[in-house]
């Protein structure tokens, strides 16, 4: 089963993502085994215990933010090419731009539906280097 690391400081948002990704779906690449990290530090502790097939991270978190985590992930030896999806509100366009510039593969604007999440994950597996494609849900 594919493993996904979900970095998000809200417990219910994590539970939401987990519920969606753990459920099997004919058209999506699930079900996933979901590993949860509640902060950037938590993620940094869990990253060496990979491999992960996908990393999903929120941007607006306390202490180290999602952008800093993206940079850290892309600089680390093991996760240079792991598909990386960032989640952020539409409002924060600049954050999204920076995240993509730092090496995230796609972004998903909050709020999203289960379908949108599955679709976003699906695209990352079809085209792992999908940065050239328009990210799902992008204007």
């Amino acid at each position: 089963m594919r493993r996904v690391l979900v970095v998000e400081d809200s417990v219910s948002a994590r539970a939401f993502v987990r519920a969606v990704l753990e459920s099997a779906d004919a058209e999506s690449p699930g079900p996933f085994e979901v590993v949860e990290a509640s902060s950037g530090f938590d993620a940094m502790r869990l990253l060496p215990r990979g491999p992960y097939d996908l990393i999903i991270t929120d941007i607006n978190m306390a202490d180290i933010n999602g952008l800093e985590l993206v940079r850290f992930i892309r600089r680390s030896e093991h996760h240079r090419t792991t598909p990386l999806l960032i989640i952020s509100t539409l409002r924060a366009e600049q954050d999204v731009e920076r995240g993509l510039a730092l090496g995230a593969d796609a972004y998903l604007p909050k709020p999203f539906t289960p379908e949108q999440l599955r679709e976003a994950c699906g695209k990352l597996f079809v085209a792992p280097a999908g940065r050239s494609e328009p990210p799902p849900g992008a204007p």
Binding site: V11, F16, A19, V20, T113, P114
Partner: peptide, 23 residues
């Protein structure tokens, strides 16, 4: 489940978590 049912499809447990976290 349609778009509006997002919460429900996201799982009842997740929804409970939501109410509790929001509180």
């Amino acid at each position: 489940m349609g778009e509006a049912g997002g919460g429900r499809e996201g799982g009842d447990k997740a929804r409970d978590e939501f109410l509790s976290e929001a509180q």
